[in-house]
Design a protein around this nucleic acid. Structure first.
Lengths: 184, 184
DNA sequence: GTCTATACTGCGATAGAC
DNA sequence: GTCTATCGCAGTATAGAC
C-alpha cells in the first residue's frame, strides 16, 4: 500500500517535471520510466495510459476551482465577493504545489485539446468568470472582468527580464485584477 | 515559379490550420500532405523539415514586432508613445492574417520550446515590454505594463461563453492596456 | 509491484525514378 | 515538382514470468 502510493506519487512528480521541461507530446513514457529507474511496463501498472497520468494531475486543480465556485455561489453578488474570488484564485495559483501543474496546462493547451479534464477545466473557468461581473454587464465589462482573472494567471508565467520576485508579481496582478472586477 | 510559390503557400496554410486544430506534435507531415492531395516527399521539396515550416510561418510575425520596435526607438519615451506601441501591437494582432499564427505560438509554447524563432520572439517581446515603462519604474509598475501588453494578447484568445464580438474584445483590451502603461 | 520481451503502429526523413 | 519505396527509430501498449 505504502509502496504503491509512493511510486504513484513519484511517477506523477517526474512526469509533470518532464512534461513542463520538454512538452507533453515530446515526453515519452520511456523517459519517465528511465528517470525513475523503472521500466515502461511498471508505469502501466499504476496508470492505464499516458492520458491517465494527466487526468490524475488535473484532479487537484479542478478541485481548487470547484471549491471557489461552491463558496461563491453561497455569497451575495457584490464587488467584495468578486474580489474574494480573485484573491482565492490567486492564492491557489501561487501555492507551491500548484504552480507546476498550472504551467503544464497553460503551455500544453493544444496538445491536451481532446483530453476530458481540459474541457472540464474550461467549463469551470467560464463559470467562475460569469461570477465576476453583474449578470447584465456590458460586453466590454464582461471582457474586462475576464481579463482580471487572466491577469492573475498570466502574471505567474510572465517572462520577465530582470529580477522581479513572486511577491511583486502577485501584488501587481492582484492590484490589476481587483480594479478590473470592481465595476458596478 | 508561380507553381512553386503557390504550393509553398498552400502547404503553409494547411499546416497552420492543422497545427491549430490538433497541436504541432500531433500533426504529422503525412496528414498535411494528405489534406493537400500530395505525398510527404513532396513537402520535402519545399521545406527541409517540419521545423522549417514553423520558421517560415514565424517570419511575418517577427517582422511585425521588429517594425514596432524600430519605430518606437525613434520616439520620445512618453506615455503617448507607449500607448501607440500598444495600439500598433493590437492592430497587428487583430489583422486577419495574423490571428491564426498568433494562436499557434500561443498554444504550442512547450512543443516549440527549443525552436529558434520562439527564442527570437521572446527576445523581441521583452524588448517591447521594456519600452512600456520608465527605465527606473518600480517592479510592480514593470509587471503592470507587461500585463498591459498581455491583456491585448489574451483578449484575442479568451474563451467567452456568450456572443461577444471581436470589436468588443479589442475595445476592452485596449482600454485596459492603455490604463496599465500610463503610469508616469 | 516490477521485470523482460515484444507486438504493432506511425513518425520524420531520404534515395532515386520519372 | 512530385512520385514510390523504404530506412531507422521511437511511440504506446500488452503478455506473461517472477
Amino acid at each position: 500500500m505504502r509502496d504503491q502510493a509512493d511510486t504513484r506519487t513519484r511517477i506523477q512528480r517526474v512526469a509533470l517535471e518532464l512534461f513542463n521541461e520538454k512538452g507533453y507530446e515530446a515526453t515519452s513514457l520511456r523517459e519517465i520510466a528511465e528517470e525513475l529507474g523503472v521500466t515502461k511496463a511498471a508505469l502501466y501498472y499504476h496508470f492505464r495510459s499516458k492520458d491517465d497520468i494527466v487526468a490524475s494531475l488535473a484532479e487537484g486543480r479542478l478541485g481548487d476551482i470547484q471549491r471557489i465556485l461552491d463558496w461563491a455561489r453561497g455569497q451575495p453578488q457584490t464587488v467584495e465577493t468578486r474580489r474574494e474570488i480573485v484573491r482565492r484564485y490567486c492564492d491557489d495559483l501561487y501555492s507551491a504545489h500548484r504552480t507546476a501543474i498550472m504551467r503544464f496546462f497553460e503551455r500544453n493547451q493544444t496538445a491536451l485539446r481532446d483530453h476530458p479534464t481540459v474541457g472540464k477545466n474550461r467549463e469551470l473557468m467560464m463559470d467562475l468568470v460569469a461570477l465576476l461581473h453583474a449578470p447584465d454587464a456590458s460586453p466590454v465589462t464582461r471582457v474586462k472582468s475576464s481579463l482580471g482573472l487572466f491577469a492573475v494567471h498570466a502574471a505567474a508565467f510572465l517572462p520577465m527580464s530582470e529580477g522581479i520576485t513572486d511577491e511583486e508579481r502577485k501584488e501587481a496582478a492582484l492590484e490589476v485584477a481587483f480594479e478590473l472586477v470592481s465595476s458596478e
